[in-house]
Design a binder for these strands. Structure first.
Lengths: 270, 270
DNA sequence: AAGTGGTCTAGACCACTAT
DNA sequence: TAGTGGTCTAGACCACTTT
């Protein structure tokens, strides 16, 4: 694709050190590993438009020669860009620049976690009791209706502002010594941050938009039917059977998820 | 479950094929690369509970000896688990099993993309015209109010069912030859899938819960104030200035995002 | 001092793609 | 046949942590 996109002397002239936009060399005495430097250099060349979506990057052999690195180190730099979805490789053909697409984007739960990590956040346990499982909780936990399960209702407040309403059902396990710890702040934080030696092995999360129902609206100080975010979580124990199910509910305006596609404005080495 | 941590004869006996829970060897003639096999073996040992959250994995030196691989190959296997957030490494101390936490989860736009990729999905362009920028679009695009911009309104239907309402504003570029292509299906798909040689370099996405407004409710066949998902997208051109801004709106019940934390039920080699 | 992960080399062979 | 990425080896040196 397109002929003279390659900058003059980019690969032919090696010793000459052209003007301000010269291809940087690898600084062997830098704190930054060589593979990271090369990844940064290639990233910068893509951001500058020197390589555009669909263009082929220099081959690994060329990069080895150009930057004076071993093949493994060059491959590692390319792996970095591969992980960033900035390029893709085709065996036998080459390495190609990817276009920035929405599809590649992913939202993490940073805003959820920021709320929990905030020292101004208080967790108030509204209720803890053993109930007979029924309806949705029974179905999600895979137990027969009537089975005793532990139900916990919590409210997360930022200062005095209610932000998250949380309802959780858990298989009642008389032999489990950690149930008490799970009722308070620690138990909730563990859901996010994990705790060594205990806690679920795997889980499924589901995020959707809904409307505030009765108690949710009341607890969150909003009106019925107000837009809401719901995050459902289902965790499994070591026997691969459901251990706990629950949901976080927030007002729609209290929470949002952000992410980027493609490169950040000024990404590293350049 | 955690009885025989160091398995007898793990490296000494090579030909003998012990019972069902024997540590598998690396099959050198397999289509599966050695590093992937080792990652699968370690993953299976974690899933079995042989290593639990916080436990230290065998050192790289031990893994080299046990499985007969070179250090680089062992490191590569660990890098796989590192990328999965299944383990973390601490220089000078070792490699440790991570707990499955909500924090590590990320939602991708698979459900958005599935809708677009579905052959039953139709895209109907409701309107295309040049308007004077004002309010939110002008602010997001960083242009003075009154600047001419191209506005596009689309409706995505699954069969005859309206599913997504899309509004987009774009810097009007008379010299841009691809504007026409962007108006229809292709332009929208490009937002997700990218197209070689054109398209934005980077963008920002924002996902939030809201309520359907006037035309959104009408077009989606729902009532005002109905729970809604909104995905805002802002794309930048090569000059790092905003190029297009817009939002997808769906009814809350039409869209949801799912993900998992920790390992899948039966993850690979075991 | 011993052990750990982190980086890097300078080759090798392979499967696949293009010409 | 030549070139590409994919895998792998058998070492090396480093910074860091633990004993």
């Amino acid at each position: 694709m397109s002929a003279s996109r390659g900058r003059p002397g980019a690969s032919a002239v090696g010793a000459a050190l052209p003007a301000e936009d010269a291809a940087p060399r690898i600084a062997r005495d830098s704190f930054e590993p060589a593979y990271a430097q090369l990844a940064g250099i290639l990233r910068a060349r893509i951001v500058r438009g020197e390589f555009q979506a669909g263009d082929r990057l220099p081959t690994e052999t060329e990069l080895v020669a150009t930057y004076g690195l071993s093949p493994m180190t060059v491959r590692r730099a390319i792996k970095v860009l591969l992980d960033e979805r900035a390029v893709s490789t085709v065996p036998g053909r080459g390495t190609f620049v990817e276009a920035a697409t929405i599809q590649a984007a992913a939202f993490d739960l940073g805003s959820f976690h920021a709320l929990l990590a905030d020292p101004a956040t208080n967790i108030r346990v509204l209720e803890t009791r053993v109930v007979s499982a029924s309806g949705r909780p029974a179905a999600m936990l895979g137990v027969a209706p009537g089975t005793p399960v532990t139900m916990i209702r919590r409210l997360l407040l930022r200062g005095e502002e209610p932000r998250l309403y949380h309802r959780q059902w858990r298989i009642a396990d008389p032999g489990h010594p950690d149930v008490d710890a799970e009722l308070g702040v620690a138990g909730l934080r563990d859901l996010f941050e994990g705790r060594v030696g205990v806690g679920p092995k795997r889980g499924r999360l589901r995020l959707y938009a809904s409307a505030l129902r009765g108690e949710e609206a009341r607890r969150l100080g909003s009106e019925l039917g107000h837009p809401a975010f719901v995050l459902e979580h289902l965790f499994f124990g070591f026997d691969d059977r459901p251990l706990s199910w629950g949901l976080f509910v927030s007002r729609g305006e209290d929470l949002h998820f952000e992410t980027t596609v493609g490169f950040a404005p000024a990404p590293g080495a350049g």
